[in-house]
């Protein structure tokens, strides 16, 4: 072996994890990202349902024009810099909302949901409509309870994209109090800030090399996904299956 680092771990040691959990910036980013993901999923789901439900109705006048208006944005966009300047002009730079509002609807997820809604039998709504229920009531009381599995799938897609995404925070966030976990991780891993972390925990100074701390940070931020993913895998797969049917 070249310099004493072997293929297999020599001994089990959790000092590096102590460093990560002791680091208040890392823990702060964790809480910030959790809050961000919860708010993001709540709002995106609301907006996606509100878009997909009306557009799933074949008899809606102007439906094709609205669909064209929406789908066009999947294939043409202003790109990175006009998007950045837009956020800047709206006064959203360095704000929580710059990480929420630009992604309120994923057109792809919306179309998945629309495809699902249009596969539900119409008779369900008809009887409620005869009873005089409004469309909002029908949506909340009848359609959504029937769509739980689909809603879970789409919510997971949104949650994972928010948890893992960092291109927007790279562009819009300078204030280190609003670093997401991924952005913080990028500072540590790519821009080599792990030495400062080691210095924060006195007992770790002697024994740790930056590489170990980096690895601990990677595991730390992968943990939530590793824990929930195996249980929810079937929902993710369902999303892809629905997507493969042309709607």
């Amino acid at each position: 072996m070249s310099n004493g680092v072997g293929l297999w771990p020599v001994e089990f040691d959790i000092t590096a994890y102590k460093v990560v959990f002791n680091n208040h910036l890392m823990v702060r980013s964790l809480w910030f990202t959790i809050l961000l993901t919860v708010v993001f999923v709540g709002l995106t789901m609301g907006m996606t349902v509100m878009t997909a439900y009306p557009l799933a109705r074949k008899d809606l006048k102007g439906r094709n024009i609205i669909l064209l208006y929406i789908i066009f944005t999947m294939y043409f966009s202003g790109g990175m810099i006009p998007g950045y300047l837009n956020i800047k002009e709206l006064g959203l730079l360095n704000s929580f909302w710059s990480l929420v509002l630009p992604g309120l609807i994923s057109t792809y997820n919306m179309i998945l949901m629309k495809t699902f809604f249009s596969s539900l039998p119409e008779e369900l709504e008809e009887s409620a409509r005869i009873d005089g229920a409004g469309e909002f009531t029908i949506l909340v009381r009848i359609i959504l309870p029937l769509s739980k599995a689909m809603l879970a799938t789409i919510a997971l897609f949104y949650a994972v994209s928010r948890w893992n995404g960092f291109s927007d925070s790279v562009l819009y966030i300078n204030d280190s109090r609003m670093y997401t976990l991924q952005l913080r991780l990028r500072q540590i891993v790519a821009l080599n800030q792990s030495d400062e972390m080691i210095n924060d925990t006195p007992e770790a100074k002697a024994s740790l090399i930056p590489e170990t701390v980096k690895a601990a940070c990677l595991v730390f931020s992968m943990l939530p996904i590793l824990v929930i993913y195996p249980w929810l895998q079937k929902y993710f797969v369902k999303g892809v299956m629905i997507g493969s049917v042309k709607g």
Binding site: M47, M50, P82, L101
Partner: peptide
């Protein structure tokens, strides 16, 4: 229901264009 989505697409997709 479609009003907020249409505004969203106007502000965050068409305005950057």
């Amino acid at each position: 229901m479609l009003v907020p989505p249409i505004i969203y697409y106007a502000v965050f997709h068409y305005k950057p264009m």
